[in-house]
Amino acid sequence: MEFKREDDLFVSGHTACAGCGAAIIIRTVMRALGKDTIIVNATSCSEIFSSCYPTSAWKVPYIHVTFENAAAVATGIAKALEAKGNDHTTVVVIAGDGATYDIGFGIMSGVMERNENVLYICYDNEAYMNTGIQRSGATPYKAWTTTSQVGTVRQGKQEWKKNLTEIARAHNIPYIATSTAGHLIDLTKKVEKAKKIKGFRLINVLSPCVAGWKYPPNLTVKLAQLAVDTGLWKMYEVENGKETINMQPKFTPVEEYFKPQKRFKHLTKEDIEDIQNKVNDYWKNGKGEIYG
């Protein structure tokens, strides 16, 4: 596998933290998409670390407008291309879980319902990392964040993670998939497939965050893989309503996933058991809940 840095459309010199999962995802996505792409970025870490004037890490056209409107801005671009007879350029949103699961969800739901011609990549790092690790709808049950603190009465997030992928699926869009920063061949294949489909496509990508999950930076890829191996993050795609599970969990104990992450260090034996039981119940009986 020969590979030249100069071919990258997302260049070195961006200012993401060392070990950033989002940077891995974005570079992989750009390698799969190619030059004929327009990027719409929601306000996020990725926007700050890639588009600080007067520099840009992007070699494709790029726009950032606000936190919550990337799906609608992308719609406008897709409509402009349609009006001008351009049927080849791919319009792609790159947004975090804050923009996708929470503040931009209403707009995205409208864009999905209308099946606009947009490919939406959510990198889910499970909290508002750009503002300093506040909980989002994507934050997992019991995880510490700066707004789901570990107190004497309550410890960590009290609610289960929102299942965005399934909510998107209920919009009957032509393509939905999940992937992670630790499965780049899978991610590449899914982006290449999605690129060829017309209409709204969502790829929800788990993106470990060194600063927010509090683990050593070399473990980003390993943690993303553990999320799948434990069964916490479901690797699947839904094409025109047909579901395919791309990778079966190995049922690695969830504790192995939690252990390196200080956001989970307050978890009791009972907490871990509780989560493990839910994961087992999901995969074995089709009941209960998982994270992804």
Binding site: I38, V40, I63, V65, T66, E68, N69, A72, V73, A74, T75, G76, I77, A78, K79, A80, L81, E82, A83, K84, G106, I107, S109, G110, V111, E113, R114, E116
Partner: peptide
């Protein structure tokens, strides 16, 4: 084109995208 957006926030955001793409 005519986009039947889900809100005014969607309306202005959509025309921002259109305009940025040169339309």
């Amino acid at each position: 084109t005519y986009v039947t957006v889900e809100s005014e926030f969607g309306a202005i955001s959509t025309i921002v995208g259109g305009s940025a793409a040169g339309a």
